[in-house]
C-alpha cells in the first residue's frame, strides 16, 4: 500500500517535470519571456549616432520607469516578410516588452526597406494611445522621420508619449473630443501680422480722418421743405422672372464611427494589441 503511494507520487513528479520541460521545448522560438530581453531602443537600421542613441535611451528609460509603461523605439532594415503590424507585435511580444502583469507598453517601429512605420500598443498602452490620440500624435512627429531627421522625430515621439502617459495617468486619455492642441501652423504668424496691419490702417486712418473736416455737402436734404415730398404716382410692375438651379454639393458620408478608444487585434502570440501604421 505504502509502496503504491510512493510510485504514484513519483509518477506525478516525473509527469510534472516532463510537462514543465516539454512546454518550453515546444515553443522555444515563440515564447513570451518574463523579462525584457532588449533595451528600449533598438537601432538595427543604424539611424542614430552613439550620443543620440545614449540620450534617447536615457529618456526612454526615465519615462518608462516613471509611468510603468515601456516606451520603445525599434528601427530595422527589413520586416522579413511580415506586415509592419505583425513584425511590431511579435517584436514586442517575443522580446518581452511591457511592464507589469499586463505588459503595459508602446513600441514604435520603423523599417527602412519599404519605409514602413508602426506603433503597437499593449496592456494599458492600448487605452493610453487611442486611435484618435495616435493619429494626432503621428501627425506631429512623422514628418521629421519622413525628412530623415530621425533623432528629432524620435525625441518628439518620446515627448508626445510622455504627454499622453501623463494625461492617461489623470484618468482621461487623449481621445476624440479630448485631443491635445497642436501648435499653430506657421502661416498664422504672417496672417496675424496682416490682420494687425489692416486693423491699424483702419483705426489710425479713422484718427487721421478726424483731422479733416472741410468737405462739400452732398445733396440738400437739410433744405427739403417740411411735408413737401408727395408721390403722385407709385407703381411696382411685375415684368417676368426666371429660375436657375445649381446642383447641391454631395455630402460626403462620413463612414465609420468615431466612437473613440482603440481598435485591437490579436497577434501571433495570442495577445491583444492596439496600434496603427503606414508609410513615411
Amino acid at each position: 500500500m505504502k509502496q503504491k503511494k510512493h510510485l504514484k507520487t513519483i509518477a506525478l513528479f516525473i509527469s510534472v517535470i516532463f510537462t514543465v520541460l516539454l512546454i518550453p521545448i515546444q515553443t522555444s522560438a515563440q515564447t513570451i519571456p518574463d523579462q525584457r530581453l532588449l533595451p528600449r531602443l533598438v537601432d538595427n537600421a543604424d539611424l542614430l549616432n552613439d550620443s543620440e542613441e545614449e540620450k534617447l535611451l536615457d529618456k526612454l528609460d526615465l519615462i518608462s520607469e516613471k509611468y510603468q509603461t515601456d516606451v520603445a523605439i525599434v528601427t530595422v532594415y527589413s520586416l522579413e516578410g511580415k506586415t509592419a503590424a505583425e513584425y511590431a507585435d511579435d517584436f514586442f511580444d517575443y522580446n518581452g516588452y511591457g511592464i507589469g502583469p499586463n505588459r503595459d507598453g508602446v513600441l514604435f517601429l520603423i523599417s527602412m526597406e519599404h519605409r514602413d512605420w508602426f506603433i503597437t500598443t499593449h496592456g494599458s498602452g492600448i487605452q493610453t494611445f487611442t486611435d484618435a490620440g495616435r493619429a494626432h500624435m503621428t501627425e506631429q512627429f512623422l514628418s521629421y522621420i519622413s525628412d530623415a531627421k530621425y533623432a528629432k522625430g524620435f525625441n518628439k515621439f518620446v515627448d508626445l508619449s510622455e504627454q499622453y502617459l501623463k494625461q492617461a495617468a489623470k484618468g482621461k486619455p487623449y481621445d476624440y473630443g479630448n485631443l491635445p492642441k497642436k501648435p499653430l501652423a506657421w502661416y498664422w504668424l504672417p496672417a496675424a501680422i496682416g490682420v494687425g496691419l489692416i486693423v491699424a490702417f483702419v483705426i489710425v486712418g479713422g484718427m487721421k480722418a478726424k483731422l479733416k473736416s472741410v468737405r462739400r455737402q452732398v445733396g440738400a436734404d437739410d433744405y427739403v421743405a417740411a411735408n413737401s415730398f408727395v408721390l403722385t404716382d407709385q407703381r411696382d410692375l411685375y415684368l417676368y422672372s426666371h429660375v436657375s438651379r445649381t446642383a447641391k454639393p454631395k455630402e460626403s458620408s462620413s463612414g465609420g464611427g468615431s466612437g473613440g478608444g482603440s481598435r485591437t487585434r490579436t497577434s501571433s502570440s495570442g495577445s491583444t494589441h492596439g496600434g496603427s501604421g503606414g508609410k513615411f
Binding site: Y223, S228, D236, T246
Partner: peptide, 26 residues
C-alpha cells in the same frame, strides 16, 4: 432647394415713381 438642387428665382420689376418735392433756402 430640394434634395438635389438649389433653385434661385429672380423676378424683375419695373418701378414707377412720380411726385414733387420742394426745397427752401438752399
Amino acid at each position: 432647394s430640394d434634395s438635389n438642387y438649389v433653385y434661385t428665382k429672380t423676378s424683375y420689376y419695373s418701378i414707377l415713381r412720380s411726385g414733387n418735392i420742394a426745397f427752401s433756402s438752399v
